[in-house]
Design a protein around this nucleic acid. Structure first.
Lengths: 346, 346
DNA sequence: GGCTCGACCCAAAGCGCTTTGGATGTCGCG
DNA sequence: CGCGACATCCAAAGCGCTTTGGGTCGAGCC
């Protein structure tokens, strides 16, 4: 069933039917009712492609996922993020299109997306400290929102980020307050902007108390369970073993815990752990009382908010009357939730 | 840059340019070269919507993700699956569109996708033992492939599944061979078809040796770390504690291991574990020698293959000449890989 | 009564592409 | 030399929708 048929069926012109359905004032309430009833009846939905062709908008938003080992889409946080974003898109009648892309092809794909007119806007995932995609997209003139930030980017751009510095500073502070002095950091890969900021927060807390940051205690790697296990194991085997760990992810923290318990040490007594918790729906941090003391920030919520920021930007972009509003930015705090993995330094 | 402009620029008609670019024989090799060079030069890409309108195909494939708690998109395997599928789509010039949908809205969304013409085909995720979506899609006439199967579905449909029965039967067999007699099953939610089949495999292996399946040892729940920990802990506390566990997921297995080690028991000596391993890229099963003995099947590969099956089906569907080929089905075996989590019954 | 002005509706022109149904020119061959 | 066959290209119709630029008709006003 298409517009033409529906219009014929109603004895109206396509114009009128289209206007009735899209809420234009030039059509009487009576016919509007009649039209929408018939549309419902015949399960009529305007064809997306035709509508897009006519309006110049695609009603779709793109997420380009790098498939390098450095930052796999399969990144466990990714699922939650687009789950949140997808909810917002659905509410606003937008589709979400995903592209898996080899690292080298990034630029090509973005250009193609622009040229083919596939999407009205983009979300940029996993920004590095130096992020060429931002400049490219700005140049291409596509609305976009970065999930995270890029420290070396000087120009303005829309972003939503967790306050990684303050989160890790606070986490480290807590451990220091508990008397810990040798604290290990198990960070993600530090070419990623979030990891760099987390380390900065960690170091800042130490510096505030005049404690030098020991390079031997600061690690950076892809965030796997095994990484947590291996590195924590190695740390604990040393003479001047750390008494506390700060971890960039729940999965890593699980590995650390394994190393701790394997040694017969008790979590929260002999060794403390604070981890960042993205509040992933399939990896919940315990029940009532969280298992791990953690800096918590829902990545699902981040997806929801980023999507809304993008849609707002798109809406503003094709309202030619109004002056372009400033690019939105948003910094989410990650509150520290106390769990059973922290205690005073033995 | 659009076709019209490009044609004008070249002093050719749109027809010729279009044909040159799409490989039709009616155009000389010389002009074809000239055209494709110019297209490259101006970074011309045909507008997807316009092309779709003209051809009646959208060059997009849909994945509808239920967002109920029962089967969250955030299901950790999901990321890997679409990562694999996305690769295939990209290679064939297809886009991938994702829809997050509340459980109740499933039917509405599928109908809408059909009416709006958003996609040329669909992948169905997380089939239940009784799965109404299959009948609906068949009725709507959209090509689709089910990832998994639906036991209570009688009609034909395209699917790709892991041989869950044989995998879990073999796993259980191995434990029995090792002398274990009290074996616990930590399964997923059994309204999901895969879980039902896994239990069937488990029970079949026991039955083959005349061992009755103890209901107290068979559990079914959402597959979280905590579930593994709690249930394994409870099992091990009993007098007639099991000496081995069969688990439906790596994450659950991690929880089981935690419970085991917390009791000072040694994995692979005091207690054995076999888990199913979806070979998730962020949750690797150890290094050279796998941590867990596991039935392994890459969900990423499954995504890749499912996508190909769907594209084949779509291609066949709009070749009106040929008779419709039978719906493809594919059963993947999940080989048993030996790790360090299994040993003879103490 | 004539005129303006809303209210309501319509025909037709695109949006950027593919594809049908020729048109034109070239070449070989009897 | 004339004619069919072939190679090469083109004009225009259409895909399903929105939107511009009117029409028509009745009510209200002077």
């Amino acid at each position: 069933m298409n517009l033409k048929e529906l219009a014929a069926h109603l004895g109206l012109s396509q114009t009128t039917v289209s206007r009735a359905l899209n809420g234009y004032p030039e059509v009487s309430e009576a016919t509007r009712l009649r039209v929408s009833y018939a549309a419902e009846q015949h399960n009529y939905r305007p064809n997306t492609r035709a509508k897009g062709l006519a309006t110049g908008r695609s009603m779709a938003v793109g997420h380009v996922i790098p498939t390098s080992t450095r930052h796999e889409m399969v990144n466990p946080v990714f699922g939650d993020f687009i789950s949140g974003a997808g909810e917002t898109y659905a509410q606003n009648g937008y589709d979400m299109v995903l592209s898996m892309v080899e690292d080298g092809d990034q630029a090509r794909v973005y250009r193609e997306l622009k040229a083919k007119g596939t999407v009205d806007g983009l979300i940029v995932h996993g920004p590095m400290t130096a992020e060429p995609r931002i400049g490219l997209l700005r140049q291409l003139g596509i609305p976009f929102v970065v999930h995270g930030r890029s420290s070396e980017e000087t120009g303005p751009y829309a972003w939503l980020d967790v306050n990684n510095v303050s989160a890790f500073q606070r986490a480290t502070d807590l451990l220091l307050d508990l008397g810990h002095r040798r604290i290990a950091l198990l960070n993600g890969i530090e070419s990623m902007d979030f990891a760099r900021r987390r380390r900065a927060g960690f170091e800042r807390a130490l510096a505030a108390r005049g404690i030098p940051a020991d390079p031997d205690l600061m690690h950076s790697h892809e965030m796997t369970e095994n990484y947590g296990y291996e590195v924590a194991g190695a740390c604990l085997a040393k003479d001047d073993a750390p008494t506390a760990f700060v971890s960039s992810s729940m999965i890593v923290a699980l590995g650390i815990r394994r190393a701790v318990e394997e040694r017969g040490l008790v979590l929260g007594a002999d060794v403390s752990i604070i981890t960042h918790d993205d509040d992933l729906s399939y990896l919940r941090n315990g029940g009532e009382v969280p298992l791990f003391t953690a800096t918590r920030s829902s990545v699902r919520e981040a997806g929801k908010l980023s999507a809304q920021m993008l849609l707002d930007q798109i809406a503003a972009a094709d309202d030619p009357g109004a002056p372009a509003p400033p690019l939105p930015t948003r910094l989410l705090e990650a509150p520290l939730v106390l769990g059973r993995s922290t205690g005073p330094c033995p």
